[in-house]
């Protein structure tokens, strides 16, 4: 007994080190799989508020640029609206709405790591929940991962765990959108069969298989494509429409049918 106590006292620093290292590794390795730790994320109260205050100061510096972007977006939407077939006022039936949208702003962006997360200033209070899609006026940004009362973290498409259903525009050839962790302006689309005719410059949009994003939200254009090791699928490099280094205003999409879809799918697999 005496010897055990002596041993512990003698190596207490080493034991402390090993203990803390195991804690850290457990948290890290656990999150190498699909989900971010719900404890270590910047949607927590302290980090969120400090980022919020800092965002409040720096947000003034690029107001002009942001205004111009919003103006362009409005112009595009008005162009669509004025050219609609039925120009009469469209009555929206609240029972037939499939998606609702929450607007928000990015308060912390990162794109230099291998697993990038973005923090936004909307949370449970604004009915933002896990697994909602987040887009900008240009294209897809990511999926909500953790929420606190006032803030949420978003798993960026620049994240090695990210996996989004995407397809080639105007066709039904879909694959998975992933990121290899190398370049912050390019993501990869895999699992497109080699029979599909591809051209450099083709547009990639979100697919219909996902219950997170609506169909046909733009992602990017094809930069180059190769066959993968199995020689039967393409591996496509995609130039993103979004400039991931410069993101301010985002839209968070709530799919009202998502719960029903998931319940149904679960029921089917259980049978």
């Amino acid at each position: 007994m005496q010897q055990i106590i002596n041993f512990i006292i003698r190596y207490k620093n080493f034991l402390l080190y090993i203990f803390l290292l195991i804690i850290s590794l457990a948290f890290t390795i656990q999150s190498h799989s699909y989900h971010q730790s719900s404890f270590f994320n910047s949607s927590n109260w302290i980090a969120g508020n400090i980022y919020g205050v800092f965002h409040g100061i720096t947000t003034y510096f690029d107001l002009d640029e942001e205004n111009e972007k919003l103006l362009q977006d409005n112009k595009r939407l008005r162009d669509q609206l004025f050219n609609l077939e039925s120009s009469a006022t469209i009555n929206i039936d609240t029972a037939s709405i499939k998606y609702t949208i929450v607007t928000g702003q990015v308060i912390k962006n990162s794109y230099a790591d291998n697993r990038n997360y973005i923090t936004i200033n909307r949370g449970k209070k604004d009915s933002v929940k896990q697994d909602m899609g987040v887009i900008t006026d240009l294209g897809v940004l990511g999926i909500v991962e953790n929420t606190s009362n006032k803030f949420a973290t978003v798993q960026s498409i620049l994240n090695e765990n990210s996996n989004i259903n995407a397809k080639i525009k105007n066709t039904n050839h879909f694959g998975s959108l992933i990121w290899d962790g190398r370049n912050y302006d390019a993501v990869q689309l895999i699992d497109i069969p080699r029979l599909v005719p591809l051209t450099i410059g083709d547009t990639i949009v979100t697919g219909a298989m996902s219950s997170i994003f609506p169909e046909n939200i733009p992602i990017g254009t094809i930069k180059k494509f190769d066959l993968d090791i199995s020689n039967s699928f393409y591996r496509i490099d995609i130039d993103l429409f979004n400039d991931m280094t410069n993101i301010k205003n985002v839209y968070i999409i709530n799919n009202l049918d998502r719960k029903e879809v998931l319940d149904l799918e679960e029921e089917t697999t259980n049978d």
Binding site: I23, F27, T28, Q36, F40, N41, S42, S110, N116
Partner: peptide, 18 residues
């Protein structure tokens, strides 16, 4: 906590502390 890096910074920092 701030940079959403799980516990990577902790692991690296205690290693050099030790």
């Amino acid at each position: 906590f701030f940079s959403d890096t799980m516990a990577l910074h902790s692991a690296a920092t205690i290693t050099i502390a030790y």
